[in-house]
Every structure is written in structure tokens, then in C-alpha cells.
């Protein structure tokens, strides 16, 4: 051990101890908890059993909720890509001072409480809200139909909550792009659409993909928004776990749901990363 090692470890020691004590330990305990038994009379039974997992994996009620969570997260990710990436590109092409003010408009909502933003969507999506009324006026629905407690409503609100992450992520990769590549394509006779599809999009891809991962994992584990817009009627994995903990008081089952949610998200994110890496190495090799 040299001086670098000593001093380095000495300096990181406090934060490391803090993290081991208050992150690693509780997480390990939660994992243990998910293998405990439970009865309505005794509460938590300190045995080692896979009964919680068996229950979740065999019951179609749980399967439906997990599938819904996945479906919502995928839709949110897709829509965020479709509107966030073009918006980042448009922002990049703006002139100052428009650019910096609109970047503030994009970042701003990230700082506003999720609860306040979701409340806005509850007002917009509810039976007397602007969106059902507009849909009715446009003749798309025969009467104003509330989008509250629907998957569509949850998806719309979550897109609103998460799309700034996508814009920022794409923005970051576009910032590394040499603007001359666009002019070069233009000088070679490419149309605006061709430039976007063949020149800009490939260079924005790393940002889109990493933004996608962020949006997906946050959408899959989102709590406040689905709890308010989806309510008790439209449960997702996180609100289900919440109910098990604070209403049913079946902590082991709730812990098992949380563990499965975490494992599921990590598996999808890791798989996604692998896929991207493989694809990308091919793209750059050819």
C-alpha cells in the first residue's frame, strides 16, 4: 500500500461506511424480508420460504399488474423518444437567447414537485377536464370520457413527468455533434429530412438509447403519478407494493413485489445495454 492508497481510502471511508450502513444493510434486510412468511394474525413470521414469490408468480392478478407496469413503461419510453428527440434537435437549432430560455422551460418542470404536476394532469384528464371536453367537441367521443384511472391517462402524465430527461439526454449527445456534418450533407445535396434521418439521428442515437433507459426505469418504478392518475382501480407494481405495506400490512409480500420490480428493471436495463453495445459495435465496425 502506498501513500495514494492510504489517503484515498481515508478520505472515502466516511461516505463508504455511511453507505454500507444505511443503503446496503436495509436493502439486504428487505431481500431477507421477502423470504419471510406472513399471517393475518401473527404478522411477519421469521421463517425462510419462497411462498411470497410463488404466490406472485402463480396468480394472474399479479401477472396482470406486472404486465401493465411493463406496458405503461414501454409506451412512455416510446412516446418520449418520439417527441423528446425531435425537440432536442429543434432546441439545438435555435438561436440565442431563445435556446437558453427554452432549455429552462424544459428543465423547469423537473424541479417542480411531481405531485403538483400530476395534479395538473388530474385536472386535465378528469371527466370535466379540458382533454375529454376537447375530444368530445372534436367529435372523437360521443360524450366527455374521463381519462382518469386509465392506462392512457397514466401514460400521458408519465410522459410529461419524464420527457425532460429524454430531451436532456439527446441534447447532450447532439452537443458533441460537429454542426459542420449537417452542412456537409447539405452541400452534398441532402434534403432536411435526409439530413435528420441519415446524419443527425445516428449521432443522436447514444443519447436516445441512454435517455430511453432512464425513462424506462423511472416509468416502471414511478409511484406518485400512477397512484394519483391510476388510483386504486388501476394498480401498477409500485402502488401494489405500497398497498401491501401500508394497507394490507403484508410486508413480506410487499417486499417480494419490490424485489421482483427491482430485479425486473435491472434485468431489462442490463439486457438493453448489452443489446445496444452489440448493435453499436456492428454499426461502427461496418
Amino acid at each position: 500500500m502506498n501513500a495514494q492508497e492510504h489517503q484515498g481510502w481515508l478520505l472515502v471511508a466516511p461516505a463508504t461506511l455511511l453507505f454500507v450502513g444505511i443503503v446496503a444493510t436495509p436493502l439486504a434486510m428487505t431481500l431477507l424480508l421477502s423470504f419471510n412468511g406472513w399471517s393475518s394474525t401473527q404478522g411477519i413470521v421469521p421463517t425462510l420460504t419462497v411462498q411470497n414469490y410463488a404466490e406472485i408468480l402463480s396468480d394472474s392478478f399479479f401477472a396482470e399488474i406486472f404486465l401493465r407496469t411493463l406496458r405503461i413503461a414501454l409506451w412512455v419510453t416510446l412516446i418520449c423518444v418520439l417527441i423528446g428527440a425531435p425537440e432536442a434537435y429543434i432546441l439545438r437549432r435555435m438561436r440565442e437567447p431563445w435556446r437558453s430560455s427554452f432549455i429552462l422551460v424544459v428543465i423547469g418542470p423537473l424541479l417542480v414537485s411531481v405531485v403538483a404536476r400530476t395534479l395538473g394532469w388530474a385536472l386535465l384528464l378528469g371527466g370535466n377536464g379540458l382533454i375529454p371536453l376537447a375530444l368530445h367537441r372534436l367529435g372523437l367521443t360521443s360524450s366527455p370520457v374521463s381519462l382518469m384511472f386509465t392506462e392512457t391517462g397514466v401514460v400521458i402524465a408519465l410522459v410529461h413527468v419524464l420527457v425532460p430527461f429524454m430531451v436532456l439526454s439527446v441534447w447532450a449527445s447532439l452537443a458533441r455533434m460537429d454542426p459542420a456534418t449537417e452542412r456537409a450533407a447539405q452541400s452534398l445535396g441532402a434534403s432536411q429530412i435526409t439530413i435528420f434521418l441519415r446524419i443527425v439521428l445516428p449521432q443522436a442515437m447514444p443519447g436516445i438509447l441512454s435517455g430511453g433507459i432512464i425513462v424506462f426505469s423511472l416509468a416502471a418504478s414511478a409511484f406518485a403519478t400512477p397512484a394519483i392518475i391510476g388510483g386504486r382501480r388501476l394498480k401498477v407494481a409500485s402502488t401494489l407494493a405500497y398497498d401491501e405495506f401500508l394497507n394490507t400490512l403484508n410486508w413480506p409480500l410487499g417486499a417480494a413485489i419490490a424485489v421482483l420490480l427491482l430485479v425486473g428493471i435491472v434485468a431489462i436495463v442490463v439486457g438493453w445495454n448489452r443489446f445496444i453495445e452489440r448493435r453499436y459495435s456492428q454499426v461502427f465496425a461496418s
Binding site: L27, T30, S221, Y242, A258, V259, L261
Partner: peptide, 8 residues
């Protein structure tokens, strides 16, 4: 996920 942290 914050949900998992909350539970933990």
C-alpha cells in the same frame, strides 16, 4: 427505485 428504498 425510490419505492424499494422506502420499503428498505
Amino acid at each position: 427505485p425510490h419505492l424499494v428504498l422506502g420499503i428498505a
